[in-house]
Simulated scan of single mutants.
Amino acid sequence: MPIPERDSAVGHSFGLEFDGITIKSITEVSGLKIEQDVIDLKQNTADGKFEVKRLPGRPKPGEVTLTRGLTSDQSFSNWVKASQFGKMKDARKGGSIIIYDFEGAEIKRYRLVNAWPKSLEIGSLKAGDTSLLTEKLSVTYERIEVA
């Protein structure tokens, strides 16, 4: 169901899709950002006045952090291992971050180009604690596209 034009989306759940595998249990996505350089063009006008024009430059690479509850799924750690051992052919992937509505229908998709895991952080381990254990995967990418 598409979002009505005047309504904003509510990110009910998030997913990560790489190599045809979709992980739908992502609880938080942070750092999702499309950015580019700004070029200052300094010049004189025909009547001799100095002006600065701002032009769009190259797209900037970025980094996104994905958080999910710790499970027996080894997708994150296997991906990190590939990059740690220099197997960049296996580690560098194209994939998508997907936003779902409350019915589980896809609202929006952000495609990451040449992404690979920079780090994997396991939440704080404390004996007797009843809080949810989490995995935080930081992924660096060369370009992001809105699909």
Rank of each mutant, 00 (worst) to 15 (best):
P2I: 13
R58C: 05
K33S: 14
L70K: 04
R111I: 14
R54K: 15
R111K: 13
G69T: 15
S138H: 00
Q84D: 13
A82K: 11
L32N: 06
N114P: 03
T130I: 06
K24W: 01
V52N: 07
D40I: 07
I39Q: 08
T71I: 11
G11H: 12
G94I: 09
V64L: 06
D40C: 02
T130F: 05
V64F: 03
Q36D: 05
F14R: 01
E142S: 12
I98F: 01
F102T: 09
L70T: 08
K49G: 01
T45V: 03
G62C: 01
I98P: 00
F14Q: 06
S124G: 11
P59A: 14
V52R: 11
P117L: 10
G95Y: 03
R92D: 07
G86M: 10
I23F: 03
Q84I: 14
V10I: 15
P117M: 09
F18T: 04
P4G: 09
W116A: 07
K33R: 14
G95N: 07
A147F: 06
D47H: 01
D129R: 01
P56I: 10
R92C: 14
G57A: 00
V80G: 01
L112S: 03
V64S: 04
Y110C: 10
N44A: 12
K49D: 13
G128F: 09
F14V: 04
S119N: 08
L70C: 02
V38S: 14
L32G: 02
V29E: 00
S13T: 12
P56T: 11
I3L: 14
E145K: 08
T134I: 14
K49T: 10
S72K: 12
V146M: 11
P61R: 12
E135Y: 05
K24D: 15
E28C: 02
A82E: 09
A91Q: 07
A9S: 12
F76P: 00
D129C: 02
R109M: 06
V38I: 15
G57W: 05
L66Y: 03
S131W: 02
T67P: 03
S72I: 08
T45S: 12
G15D: 04
I99C: 08
R143C: 10
A127R: 00
H12I: 09
T130L: 12
G86C: 08
W79Q: 05
D7S: 11
L125H: 04
L112N: 03
W116M: 11
G48I: 10
